[in-house]
Design a protein around this nucleic acid. Structure first.
Lengths: 340, 340
DNA sequence: CAAGTTAATGCAATCGGTTACAATACAAGA
DNA sequence: TCTTGTATTGTAACCGATTGCATTAACTTG
């Protein structure tokens, strides 16, 4: 039952050729006669030959493996990103080593270390919630291993980045709420060290300023965007004297929970408070009223990031690291925010 | 900047020892003097030595990499399973090669092939929706590479399996609906080739039979459990003459959408129709009324599956393949089904 | 026909650990 | 003192693919 693994030496012996010729033929080397190539390819297929990647990697010092570190896998967005990455990586013969940091810098460091020891050819990262330091990526930079950030990026002169225009998305969402007559909009965001949250806040501020409305800092909340946070926000609103008439929470699940609690407390959505979320997560469609949100092009982001990475590895594309690649996002208007 | 990679030969030369001694010391071989080990370990740490896994794998014919194939990553359940697997794998120094079949047998085959060519030491699989054949796993079995199924399992004498007791879960959910006074329960399930769905159906039938109620086959629907399916089911119910008073849909998102559409059509939940979902997905908590569902112990399942796999690889645990490992699930009762 | 090209293939070293089989040193036992 | 045993370290042959540098045969050209 247990079949023996067949090597280029076996093929060479059977075909009365040298291992070198077999190796070159299998790699489509131009110096090898076309007929010989066919012969070797056929025999290889017949005997179920598969290249020993370890021997190959040992010799070439390339692993054909790329590391991916994400905060969590369990979001619709992330798994879509990964599907996009996987498609491209597969096409180019790369494997993916995927791990989650679970939003902890410590785990992110550990993951990075594992990736480094696995000698990935490149690293794609969406950084954790509380990551402050870049130092665990320095080892890669020092060894000339490309690091590319996506979505949650870090600013580094030698690293590429793929993002959506969070500032614009934040602006659009806020503008829409203003457009629906909201004048006192609360903005619930995440850790402002992360570009995605900081940028959305900027967009929020720009939209407010655009209407010459005052910016009330008490209406800007930095939370962990968890389900508990959603509940806490609703409680807090209920306790406020001057209540907001609009709510822009940059996470759908958090927004959905918050909306649910507000409804239980008797607030009418969207009439008392109009709500906008972020990500176009499936929950945004099952809550009632359905949640206005921002569509995040995950699949596209994954494909773009991977294409960029592989382009850089192959040296075909020289990456301009000065500016991140920016993808289009889109405001999806649903009933949670339509007041007119 | 670009640092040179250090090898055991470098260490050997610096310490005036042989590469063999260095290798053995680093692997904690008993024949090596304790002091020598310390000496070598210190020097290795000082110079930032990292073992070249390819050389090692080439020689030992082990990759320390395990393949994981899942239908999709984007469910709370799956990513929790993976977190559990990752934790255990990390502890034992294994890497994970993760890929999604996107519910397609074809893609599952492709993934399996990639895993095979990457020479994973073992494979953990939750099979796709439409997988019929086992043949793409035969290559692993033939080469004595252990294959372990989890959640969506295939019956094979040489493969282990980790599951929840789907029959019991289906029974409990149905029993609960009956207990709430439902007498005409509709069961919406997935592809009955999959154990998870077939078993839940069995539990459903057992509960119905337990009350001496008739089994109406028109009330058993096999769907793809998608969001669209959820909508279609609601339409179908609305068109029925004898409408069900209970609804057991084995997927939370599908159930949530169905409930939403039913509500729009004027049905009172749970009074007209009581609803139970499956998986304890976050959506089950944000819909109103909150959805009764079955808790799925994902983290536990991941840990158990990985522990079993690694135990088998190390030969420490001899696996009993005749019976799958069964984990406890739990019915979580929420307002969508409480009528009394 | 000799010299120079071109095309196709082979030789052998290399990548960096691992490990079977010595080899060495020193202490205990005869 | 000589033998045997034990503890430690060394030698060298792998693992399988890659590739710089020949080598050989066949073909052109002056």
């Amino acid at each position: 039952m247990m079949e023996k693994e067949i090597t280029i030496y076996d093929l060479a012996k059977i075909l009365a050729l040298s291992p070198a010729t077999v190796s070159r033929a299998l790699n489509d080397h131009p110096a090898i006669n076309a007929k010989t190539k066919v012969l070797i390819a056929e025999k290889a297929a017949e005997l179920g030959y598969r290249s020993n990647t370890f021997a190959s990697h040992l010799r070439t010092r390339k692993t054909n493996t790329l590391g991916v570190i994400v905060p969590r896998l369990n979001s619709n967005f992330m798994s879509t990103v990964l599907a996009g990455m996987e498609e491209v990586a597969n096409n180019f013969g790369y494997n993916l080593l995927i791990s989650q940091s679970l939003e902890s810098e410590q785990k992110e460091r550990a993951n990075a270390k594992t990736m480094f020891n696995s000698r990935v050819d490149g690293l794609l990262v969406s950084v954790a919630y509380d990551t402050d330091s870049f130092e665990h990526f320095d080892t890669f930079i020092n060894r000339n291993i490309p690091v590319l950030f996506f979505d949650r990026i870090m600013d580094h002169p030698q690293c590429g980045a793929v993002v959506i225009d969070n500032e614009q998305a934040g602006y659009d969402a806020t503008y829409h709420l203003l457009d629906q007559g909201c004048r006192r909009i609360m903005h619930v965001t995440g850790d402002l060290r992360r570009n995605v949250y900081a940028d959305r806040l900027e967009g929020f501020k720009r939209a407010i300023a655009g209407r010459n409305l005052p910016l009330d800092n008490r209406l800007i909340l930095s939370t962990d965007l968890s389900q508990e946070a959603g509940k806490a926000i609703a409680e807090e609103i209920d306790d406020m004297e001057e209540k907001p008439d609009g709510l822009f929470i940059v996470n759908d699940l958090c927004a959905a929970i918050c909306m649910q609690v507000l409804k239980e407390k008797g607030y009418a959505i969207p009439d008392d408070i109009a709500i906008v979320g972020f990500n176009n997560d499936p929950v945004s469609q099952v809550v009632s009223p359905q949640l206005t949100t921002v569509f995040y092009p995950g699949y596209q982001m994954g494909k773009t990031a991977m294409t960029t990475m592989i382009g850089q590895l192959n040296g075909t594309k020289s990456i301009d690291h000065s500016e991140p690649t920016i993808l289009r996002s889109e405001l999806i208007i649903r009933r949670s925010s339509i007041r007119l």
